[in-house]
Every structure is written in C-alpha cells, then in structure tokens.
Write a protein that binds this DNA or RNA. Structure first.
Lengths: 132, 132
DNA sequence: TAACAAACTGTTATATTATAACAATTATAA
DNA sequence: TTATAATTGTTATAATATAACAGTTTGTTA
C-alpha cells in the first residue's frame, strides 16, 4: 500500500493550489497566489514543486513550463507520463492508458539504451475546439 | 519530392552550428558561438530557431531547453518526434521508429481529442553509462 | 518594372523562468 | 541526545525567451 506522504507546510500549500486549478499553473503564478500565505520567493515555490514532482503528486508540462496535479492514482513515482494539450484553448489532460504505458515502457532503443522513464505530450484540438 | 529549403543567412549560420554539434545546444550557447559572425542579440537566434523548427530542420528538446538537428530524413514537418536522453552523460538521440510513430499517431484519446502531433522523451542510461 | 506584401534583419529593452549561496530551523533516526 | 537530513527564509543573480520598433531584402503580381 502506498502510504500517504506527509507534506511540509509549503509543499501542501503549493499542492493545494495546483489541485484546485483548472489547468496547468506556472511557477510565478503560484507564487503570486501564495504571497498572502507568507511565501515570498521563487525558491520556495521551486523547492516545493521539485519535491511534489519527485513524489509524483504533480507533473511538469515541459512544453509549457507549467505544472498540473497528477490525476492518475498510480504514478507515485512518475515514470510514465502522457498528456494531451489543446493547441487552441490550451486545456491539458493527463492521458492514462495502460496499453500506451506498457507499449512505451517496454519499447527498446536500437542503440541499446535502457529506458527508465518517459514523458509524452500530444498536441491537437480538443473536442470543443474541434467543433468551433 | 521535398524541395531543398533555401535558408536565410542567419538561419543557415544557426543550422550549421547545431548540425556540427555533438549534442543539444542551448540558445545562448549558440549566440556566444556566432557573435564573431555578427549576430549579437538573442532575438536573432530565437527567430532562426523558430523557423528551423517550423520547417523540421531542428527539434527542441523540451526537458532541456536545447536544440538538436533533425536526423530523421522524413520529418520536414515534425509531427512525430521522439528522443532518448541519457540522464548521466546527457547524450540525446532521435528515436526513429516507424512502429512507434504509427502507434502514437493513430492513438486515440478517450476524451475525443484529435491529435495532430506528439513529442516523446525517453530517459534512462545509454549503453556506455549503463556499463560504468 | 512598379508597387505591394511577406519574410527577414538589427536593435534596445524587458519579461519570464530558474538556480546559487548562505544562514537558520525543524523533523527523523541512531 | 546528538547528529543528519529535510525544510525554511532570504537576497541576489543566472538563464531562457519575447515585445516592440524600424529598416531591408525578397518574392509576387499587376
């Protein structure tokens, strides 16, 4: 059983904000939102983000330099992350597909590299934007 | 037949440097390397990079904010990019695998999103670093 | 070939994202 | 208890990227 990770104060504050958000949040936007709680410096945000990523509570959307809460219960250690990103409205969803993860985690490089982890970002138009 | 794209002076200079490099290059490292050629400002680099990405000559490694030359002849328009990244020596290779691209390009989201493009980054240890 | 549009250039300034370095405090474990 | 790891707070700065403006070159087409 995965034990519930005990987070420090700053880590919990940052996680709460990311979990409440409807989309990916940028580090400095998180910062502006927590200044009333006494967090004043980027370092404090980045340290919390680093930890939250490490324990799989959040993920970084690399193409956007933004952070989302993990919505896939089984990535305590995120070695297989995939996201869909709408190029129009910028909505981001975590893609959680067993077949996809399996396929990619067992994928073998021709160069003899052993993969431990992957991150996949799909781009396109979401259902809503496709119609418009 | 894909016509050979005619590049502007700055675009060619930037492409040459990236093609000669052994690994991913960062924008400012490119800048320092081309100052002797009269390119002085970040904008000039980023504009060239944008164009080169657009026409598929180079790719951005999102997790590293760095740029590599395309080594897969058939991504004039890069809608399917995959890379392997060694977490130790940081060597990056483009993964060119028809089965992989096919699988991912036809992958269907449960949310009804139409994917046009993806970028995949694998992390692990390369052959050399695995041994050590 | 004139004349218009598109793409590119150069430049200055500034915005955005992220880390370094140092000192103090709190939590964990031996 | 003591020491060690993790976290905090803080100031400063590094690294990455874009905005905005003005001029030039290239390509298109009338």
């Amino acid at each position: 059983m995965a034990q519930t990770q005990i987070l420090s104060r700053n880590q919990q504050i940052v996680l709460d904000i990311i979990e409440k958000a409807k989309g990916p949040l940028k580090a400095y936007s998180i910062l502006f939102n927590v200044q009333k709680k006494g967090i004043n410096a980027p370092q404090q945000i980045y340290r919390a983000l680093d930890k939250l990523i490490k324990i799989g509570k959040i993920h970084k959307i690399e193409s956007k330099n933004a952070f989302v809460a993990c919505t896939s219960s089984n990535c305590e250690i995120s070695k297989a992350t995939a996201f869909s990103i709408c190029e129009k409205c910028e909505v981001v969803d975590e893609v959680s597909d067993a077949k996809l993860s399996k396929f990619l985690l067992k994928f073998n490089d021709k160069k003899g590299m052993k993969f431990k982890r992957f991150n996949l970002e799909f781009f396109g138009l979401c259902k809503r934007c496709k119609i418009k």
